[in-house]
């Protein structure tokens, strides 16, 4: 399942529901990304996206993961709009018979969400606002898949 939303999500509740709905999966892995105030002074994170492309891109990334690993299911939730430090930005969960598939697919989803899903983050600090630059490491991370 893919969900793109402005509303906050309850990562624990989502994970429990996801795990309850997959039959015969012995391994469930999840990752939650949280807004963090690294340098100090972060007031909010504003996430812009390209609505017509977002679900399409996320769906394609999820479909690749499902095709490549032996997954029972995969969940992707990604938020947009204004988020405060400590709020969840996104989560992925994967369910598989074996843990290696669940872990690897979750990492693959994360790597692709970072640089192939049409979201852009802007940090709002006391001193002003700045777009978050993409990292060469994030692009390089795709190379291992």
């Amino acid at each position: 399942m893919i969900r793109v939303q402005a509303m906050p999500f309850d990562a624990g509740g989502e994970l429990n529901r996801f795990a309850a709905e997959v039959d015969g999966a012995g391994a469930v892995v999840s990752f939650t990304g949280v807004v963090r105030d690294v340098a100090g002074g972060l007031e909010a994170m504003e996430i812009e996206h390209y609505p017509a492309m977002t679900e399409k891109a996320l769906g394609a990334i999820r479909a690749q993961a499902v095709q490549r690993w032996d997954l029972a299911d995969a969940l992707v939730i990604h938020r947009f709009g204004r988020l405060e430090p400590g709020e969840g930005i996104m989560m992925v969960a994967t369910a598989a018979r074996h843990r290696r598939d669940a872990f690897e697919a979750a990492e693959f989803l994360m790597d692709y969400l970072k640089s192939r899903a049409p979201f852009w983050k802007k940090e709002i600090t006391r001193d002003g606002a700045a777009w978050v630059a993409s990292k060469a490491d994030d692009e390089a991370a795709l190379g291992r898949w």
């Binding site: 390209y50 399409k56 990604h78 969400l113 970072k114 192939r116 049409p118 852009w120």
Partner: peptide, 28 residues
């Protein structure tokens, strides 16, 4: 992106309806 699919700058525009320009994505 051409019609919501990532593309290259040398891609042809014939038949395309929507073109989007943006910086490298920073999701996740």
């Amino acid at each position: 992106a051409l019609d919501q699919e990532l593309a290259e700058f040398d891609a042809p525009l014939a038949g395309v309806r929507e073109v989007a320009f943006f910086p490298p994505m920073t999701g996740g």
